[in-house]
Design a protein around this nucleic acid. Structure first.
Length: 506
RNA sequence: GGCCCAUUCGUCUAUCGGUUAGGACGCCAGGUUUUCAUCCUGGAAAGAGGAGUUCGACUCUCCUAUGGGCUACCA
């Protein structure tokens, strides 16, 4: 029996979660659900200088909107808490000490100034990439070079220090990434990473490994930007004699234009959100979100799921449940994926169209006071030409209020000499009707055409123009039925009048 | 610069040695529609380059090129 699947999403509360982060969370969620496992969230706030108030709340709120809430995390409970690293602060030190005791790590007393100097010296000698590593550490100020009594003295005096990983010399570290296969890195290329900072906090590397172990994480699914430090993490597990979780490094989300990874600035510059929800910075700058733009979370999630993963079939529309069912890490692609705003809109359109008129009416009712009955018909008439829910009301505004402006192009192209008399004659026909349903109106219209010896194209656009002010839209007979006899006749009168004036002024 | 990862239509991708290299978005054309949207049909559009391995390479290996990531007491 293999260990239960437990995965985590471990964001840093340094700002709003962007869509790349949401996708990482999504894949973790899908993997957990697929394997009857647990998806938890852990807040990695070991860098206190970058903490942004509200970011943690934003992250939870965004995941909730997306429908991919973890079952363990801050405010959610769970047996492995606390789930915020700053609240776990006291437990990391012992692990750093253990590493020192086992000679896997050491104290380093070099000041920031020392390090800057060494780097600049190296640079001056044509070596721009100086590293604190298994060669250079021999000439630095640390517990490996200093005599023991000196080290004890410095520690006793409270001299600031960090704890660094003692990277072994010339060893190939290998691990099998679930997405990339075997990855091999020689330790000579890895520096002696700081594990414990002088401010008493662990760095990401230490805290991450300790917590993943303590929280019994089975699979680490994270962004590709972590791939270079994965060997260090493997070495840390080894140093603690802990089982190493399975790694899966996800391809990055790239910006739609040019190259490079998607950044928060790309969004509003290119006209699409990069965040799930709106975010206002402390300076008052607004970054727009998918939620506020009117996207359905299902559409957003569907789009993200297919950015770097596919089911191996031609199916593209997936509910969350279907994604869970179809998901597997070996169908995640290796290369970075450029995000495509057009396709995102397409997904949104598909989801809008698939919703029932009643459902859409329910959503619409929060935007207007109109009756549900009316909203159902409006949704029915407009949803095929809308992308967002609010488009239904905007595009179909004339269904609720008589038009105040009339399409100029239609006027100049269609409103000929006889238009007024034609519409007045049709008005008379409609006025006679006892019932005002679409079939009756259509039949009346057709016999009217026959009597006049005219084609549809010569008359119907006129009817549409005076009733809706537009040159295009859904079936005129359904629109007239929706408006009712009284409103239709009223609009015809005022429409004819208004169009005549517009024609004169043109 | 060093290390690591990647490379199929403009974009997301299928293909796990033998295919007319498939689908989707977008684009173009035609049909349906009073019109627009929807819908239907069709079209243009791809294996970065070079060496190998093999009867045969998009698929395996190597080199080059290109792109990306990392290179902090940030995550």
């Amino acid at each position: 029996m293999s260990k239960p699947v437990r995965v985590r999403f471990a964001p840093s509360p340094t700002g709003p979660l962007h869509m790349g982060g949401v996708r990482t969370a999504l894949y973790n969620y899908l993997f957990a659900k697929k394997n009857n496992g647990t998806f938890l969230i852990r807040i990695e706030d070991t860098d206190q200088t970058r903490f942004v108030p509200g970011a943690q709340e934003y992250i939870m709120d965004a995941l909730k909107w997306c429908g991919i809430m973890p079952t363990e995390g801050p405010g959610l409970g769970g047996n492995f808490g606390p789930y915020v690293q700053s609240e776990r602060k006291d437990m990391y030190r012992a692990y750093a000490d253990e590493l020192i005791a086992n000679e896997k790590a050491y104290y380093a007393f070099d000041t920031e100034e020392d390090l800057t100097n060494v780097r600049e010296q190296a640079k001056a000698q044509g070596m721009p990439n100086w590293q604190y590593n298994n060669v250079s550490r021999t000439s630095m100020k640390n517990s490996l070079t200093l005599p023991q009594d000196k080290v004890d003295q410095l520690l006793a005096e409270g001299t600031p220090y960090v704890i660094r990983m003692k990277m072994p010399r010339n060893r190939d570290v290998r691990f099998e990434d679930q997405i990339r296969g075997w990855v091999v890195v020689n330790t000579n290329n890895i520096d002696d990473k700081v594990l414990f900072k002088s401010d008493g906090m662990p760095t990401y590397h230490l805290a991450n490994i300790v917590d993943d172990h303590l929280m019994e994480i089975s699979h680490v699914i994270r962004g590709e930007e972590w791939l270079p430090s994965a060997p260090l993490h493997v070495l840390l597990y080894e140093a603690f004699s802990w089982d190493c979780p399975v790694f899966a490094h996800l391809p990055l989300l790239l910006r739609p234009d040019g190259n490079g990874k998607l950044s928060k600035r790309d969004g509003d510059r290119l006209g699409f959100p990069v965040f799930p929800c709106d975010w206002t910075t402390a300076e008052g700058e607004l970054y727009s979100g998918y939620r506020e733009k009117g996207y359905f979370p299902e559409a957003f999630i569907n789009m993200l799921a297919l950015l770097g993963w596919n089911s191996g079939t031609n199916k593209e529309i997936f509910s969350l449940e279907e994604l869970v069912e179809a998901f597997s890490l070996d169908r995640v692609s290796k290369a970075g994926a450029k995000f495509d705003p057009d396709k995102t809109k397409w997904f949104q359109q598909q989801y809008l169209r698939s919703k029932s008129d009643e459902t859409l009416a329910g959503l619409l009712s929060s935007m207007t006071n109109e009756s549900e009955e009316k909203l159902i018909t409006i949704a029915h008439l407009m949803k095929e030409r809308a992308t967002f829910t609010q488009d239904i009301l905007e595009e179909g505004a004339y269904l609720l209020n008589a038009p105040t402006s009339f399409d100029e192009q239609t006027i100049s192209k269609k409103w000929k000499e006889d238009a007024e008399s034609l519409m007045l004659a049709f008005y008379d026909e409609l006025e006679k009707l006892a019932s005002f349903d679409r079939e009756t109106i259509e039949n009346t219209f057709k016999s009217f055409l026959e009597n006049k010896g005219l084609g549809i194209g010569a008359v119907l656009p006129l009817f549409r123009l005076i009733l809706t002010g537009k040159g295009m839209g859904p079936s005129m007979f359904e629109i007239a039925e929706f408006l009712g006899k009284e409103e239709t006749l009223t609009r015809m009168k005022s429409g004819i009048y208004a169009v005549n004036i517009a024609k004169q002024n043109a």
